[in-house]
Nucleic acid binder design. Structure first.
Lengths: 217, 217
DNA sequence: CGCGCGGGCATACCTTGGTATAGGCGGCTA
DNA sequence: TAGCCGCCTATACCAAGGTATGCCCGCGCG
């Protein structure tokens, strides 16, 4: 709930990036040229730590990850990313994996799990799907964080009135609920509409829905 | 959009059922006693066809399925169920599966994919999770089909007004949009509220949202 | 044919929503 | 201390929502 600046300097929509983490240099190179051949940007790393240290442009992306890594395992790294709430679609590669490993990865949200050697087309299909997923998630995050920012400008009272109004109560009922006069509720309600940039009650209801609000009586 | 009777005879909430499809009779029996030991109902079948022919009570359920089946494969059966829009959480078992097989199953929505021999506890955990998933889906289906039924009682005009009103337009704007007088819009709007059993505009907006309505201008 | 039903419109009347103007109170901070 | 902000309230006024009564039209159906 900290109020960070939410307007980043407008950047040209960057091309999708495939992040490859594998300790085998020759495989990295092969994947790099494979992805570049269809116009994707590529970022190569030999270990998870290197990736975490790197700064990557803000574009749709996905991670192509070997299960066996120097240091942590791919599955552990996946869990680590999830804990740091970094949402990044992952495609696993493995030379000596087993079924429980693949199931665990998929249950944790991996997009795909390829066994080496894999066909180029399979990898490209997986990466395309992953990039699409990330694109969708980014769009959702962008709109929902804008909504959050607006909601954060509301005072405590205004939030309270917003919850009650969007739950379907009339002004007089809201007033009775919180022990205010109806006119005061109207004022707050007007402030809420203005601050949330809602053009109608229907708008506001949808916003409340997206924010997960509910009137706890 | 056919108007089927939507009120089924009220049945007592039945206990969860585990459906087991495996051609190995001894495994079926073992699983049966395992599941019964924690109070779950069990339905046993030797093949997919037998399951399809059977009538099962309307209760939370899941399917425990061997990948290798007489006739169709488990994966094909999974796809077949999906096509017949039968939503049924599936737990696969396999003795000789491979990774691509497990990945395909998980991508198609399987809850788990266990390799034989598995530990009893792993199977029980998977089944519990699957039953929970089915319980949630059933609740969602029930409420959304009730909503559908109400929506189906609306006339064409009423549906049109509902979409426009819940998109945030005022009565006069709706009237201009569809070429009616404002008073007529009010009448339809009132009919919509009554037929949809909405107690407030906020309610109606949420219903429209759940129904996926949008005002196509 | 009469009837019901979906659809449309008008007048009248009341409730609810929304805003402007104006005032008071308490707390925080330059 | 003055000023700002959140908060609360009141009067007044107008727009929008909602319902009732009454009347009209066209269509399908027993």
């Amino acid at each position: 709930m900290t109020s960070r600046p939410l307007t980043r300097p407008a950047q040209p929509p960057s091309a999708p990036i495939v992040i490859v983490v594998d300790d085998d240099a020759s495989l990295r190179d092969a994947l790099s040229s494979l992805f570049r051949s269809i116009g994707l940007e590529v970022a190569l790393f030999a270990s998870a730590a290197e990736l975490l240290a790197a700064k990557l442009p803000d574009a749709p992306r996905c991670l192509v990850l070997d299960i066996r890594l120097p240091g942590v395992s791919g599955l552990d790294f996946q869990a680590q990313l999830a804990r740091s709430d970094i949402e990044l679609p992952i495609i696993f590669m493995t030379g000596h994996g087993d079924i429980p490993m693949s199931v665990r990865a998929m249950k944790a949200g991996a997009v795909d799990f390829l066994t080496k050697p894999f066909r180029d087309q399979d990898m490209l299909d997986a990466v395309s799907a992953a990039i699409e997923i990330d694109r969708g998630r980014r769009a959702e995050r962008a709109s929902s964080s804008k909504l959050r920012a607006l909601y954060d400008t509301l005072t405590e009272r205004e939030r309270q009135i917003m919850a009650l109004v969007t739950s379907g109560l009339m002004n007089k009922q809201v007033a009775a609920e919180v022990g205010l006069s109806e006119i005061t509720v109207k004022i707050h309600r007007g402030n809420v509409m203005r601050k949330m940039e809602a053009h109608s009650l229907a708008d506001l209801v949808r916003m409340a829905e997206a924010l997960g609000l509910s009137a706890k009586s």
